[in-house]
Design a protein around this nucleic acid. Sequence first.
DNA 1: ACCTGAACACCGTTCAAGT
DNA 2: ACCTGAACACCGTTCAAGT
Lengths: 223, 223
Amino acid sequence: MPTKPKPSARRGESLSRERIIEASIELLDSLGEAGLTFRALSERLATGAGAIYWHVADKGDLLVAASDSVVAAVLEAGVAGKTPEARIRAVALGLFDEIDRRPWIGSALARAPGQLPVVRIMERLGQQVVAMGVPPKSQWATTNALLSYILGVGGQNAANTAFATTRDIDRQAFLGEMAQAWAGLDAQAFPFTVSVAAQLPLHDDRADFLAGINLLLSGVRGQ
Amino acid sequence: MPTKPKPSARRGESLSRERIIEASIELLDSLGEAGLTFRALSERLATGAGAIYWHVADKGDLLVAASDSVVAAVLEAGVAGKTPEARIRAVALGLFDEIDRRPWIGSALARAPGQLPVVRIMERLGQQVVAMGVPPKSQWATTNALLSYILGVGGQNAANTAFATTRDIDRQAFLGEMAQAWAGLDAQAFPFTVSVAAQLPLHDDRADFLAGINLLLSGVRGQ
DNA sequence: ACCTGAACACCGTTCAAGT
DNA sequence: ACCTGAACACCGTTCAAGT
């Protein structure tokens, strides 16, 4: 019996959709959103741009496929939790942490509504919403509220780090500048913002994110 | 007494930051996010690209200024409401409707965290959160949850219409295709998504958005 | 079937030169 | 001080031509 008839594919040598997506993720992880270009990708893969287009529809397809691969991994890892509510928290925090590590996911998801990676998240949330006993009529709206909130926070976080990266400073320094700008606003017109400016660089993003999830969950319970 | 010493500025003739922002909004309204380019803008204003850079720092500055002008107008118009909760709903719906009319606002806000237009929204929300009697310790997180939710929904809506525009179909047709794609998913792996696919093209986006706001508000009340 | 790589049609931004 | 517009350094995508 001969070995599998795929002879020319020495490890990592032939081009494939998987190798392209893998290389895309490496590029995105190391250089950020702006780092993924067909030129950088074809150089890294030692081919021409046209070769990539044979395996991939366009840049949007590439971004969706890349985020899908990491979202799927996060969801596989983060199913822990005894109650539906605990599982919702676990999924939400798992995604938050991953977006913190890889900000490009945040903006990729924000720009791919209804696509598979987003659907994966919605599915997980929806299952728990159903398990919580939310009446059928409200299941969709409830699930979507959770989803929109998670994507909203993710998008803001992604934009924050992208912004900081462009200016070649770290996230902390960037938030510090933002706090200063807020503190300098007219206290008559922006009383809340000015009063809250001092907290900005100190606050715990993750805890605040979870507070929002808890607000939504407590709202669901109260319905 | 002579007239004001600004003689050469016949109405709408000389270039200014205001005229540039005005023209940018026109471009964004008529052609969408992708319609705003320095080439289109300089043609419309009958000048060179360099002239625009004299009044404006870069494209980001332009986008922030354009969204700030419409966000400020929305907030000025939408202060109605007798209770803090009613005012939060009014602000949220006012923004939702404006993003529905001008999807580019949704993505501009999502990409400008901490910038003036977003701060305006946060300020309004924060004032009402304070008025609701939320304890100081929770005011920031509560306000941010509302803000992130609003920006999250806005971003998704913007991405939806941008997607549809690219494919030269309307939003309704686009959601129809999405529903069909969802319905075709594996019902074992995606039970919630499949079960909900039929509702997708029929549901009322605005009502769902408001449901999410109400979930958050009821969570705030319950704290 | 899959890959090459030059070419096309764009971008945002800069900058010497003008007034 | 303000404007001109060509030039620079990029993009994503296409496509004739190769194997």
